[in-house]
Simulated assay, not measured.
Amino acid sequence: MTDLDVHTHLAPINAARLEGLPGVRWLPEQPALELDGHRVGVRALFEPAHLLEWMRTHAIARALVSIPPPLYRQHLPEEQALEWARYVNQELLAVCARSEGRLSAMLHLPLEHPGLLARLIEEHQDTPFGGVAIAAGGHPSIVYSDAHYAPLWEWLNDRGVFTFLHPGACADTRLARFYLENLLGNPYETGVAASHLVLAGIPARYPRIRFCLAHAGGAFTALVGRLQKGFDTQRPGVDLGVEPPLQAARRFYADGIAHHPAGLRLAREVLGQDKLLFGSDWPFPMGLEKP
């Protein structure tokens, strides 16, 4: 049996509450969730029982569940973003509470609005949850090395929280063709986020945060050697007072969604064998259908 799947998604549906949220429409007959004109129609996202059955079929004991990127809604103004974050967190916690311990919710924290983080953290001081999921980009204001995230890192460190970095949207318009926003943009965004953490010395400063990188570490595992070279040759702007990049990389966890044995071997070599965790990206086709 696989003890844990760290990368699964659900879109929690409470039809009565959704009716009062601007820009949101639940279409039960399809079923689909319409968000700001964009339709999310992956049926399994709305069916926690489907996830539990898939877990039973593949002997997976427990899963960490986060909302999928189409539900991040990173363009929302601050007050709407707060209302939306409260909805998805409360409803995802409720879904997981009905799973008899099989599912654990990862809280959604909208990093594009740093001013909201303290309010959301305060609301969940006593909440039992499985971790937090934060967007590795998708909005120009999300720069992980910025000082305004220090209170968040302190809270996560104090509680030893499992912190999942999952890419949101990629703003590079060149990636609009060929599904490249996902195929290339996702690992790129994770690489940018992890690089900011490492070069700002955040993993060493907050060692109890269990940072986990989606998609086998994305581009980070392929590029951390280049970060190390910049550190060793004292490139302009590189802070030599932080932990060296290759050493800092050993503090990260990653799921195993590499889609090629060489990518998985690279993640194992860079991060360490004990830092690779099973993740399926259920129920999306870019994930792993079988453990």
Rank of each mutant, 00 (worst) to 15 (best):
V6R: 11
T8G: 11
A11T: 15
A11D: 06
E19S: 09
L21R: 14
Q30W: 03
L35Q: 03
V40A: 12
V42Q: 13
A44G: 08
F46T: 10
P48K: 14
L51T: 10
L52R: 13
W54V: 12
M55L: 07
R56W: 12
T57R: 14
A61R: 10
R62C: 10
L64N: 05
P68K: 10
Y72G: 00
R73Q: 07
H75N: 07
E79I: 13
Q80I: 06
L93K: 12
A94D: 12
V95T: 12
C96G: 11
A97K: 03
S99N: 07
S99A: 14
S99T: 14
G101L: 06
L103N: 03
L103S: 10
L109V: 14
E112F: 01
L116F: 09
L116A: 08
R119H: 02
L120T: 03
I121E: 14
E122T: 05
H124A: 03
Q125Y: 10
A133L: 12
A133W: 13
V143N: 04
S145C: 00
S145M: 00
H148L: 06
E154W: 07
L156G: 14
N157K: 06
V161D: 15
V161K: 15
P167V: 14
R174C: 05
R174L: 06
R174F: 09
L175E: 13
A176K: 04
Y179S: 02
L180M: 13
L183E: 15
Y188L: 12
E189P: 12
T190L: 13
S195K: 00
L197A: 00
L199I: 05
L199Q: 03
L199R: 01
A200K: 09
G201V: 06
G201P: 15
I202T: 03
A204H: 09
A204R: 04
R205V: 05
C212I: 02
L213P: 01
A214I: 11
H215M: 15
A216Q: 07
A216L: 08
G218C: 09
F220K: 07
T221L: 08
V224K: 00
Q228A: 04
Q234G: 00
P236Q: 01
D239R: 01
L240G: 03
L240S: 02
P245K: 00
A248R: 03
Y253H: 13
G256M: 02
I257D: 05
A262N: 09
A267M: 12
L271N: 00
K275P: 00
F278D: 09
S280C: 11
S280Y: 09
P283L: 07
M286E: 14
E289N: 12
K290Y: 05
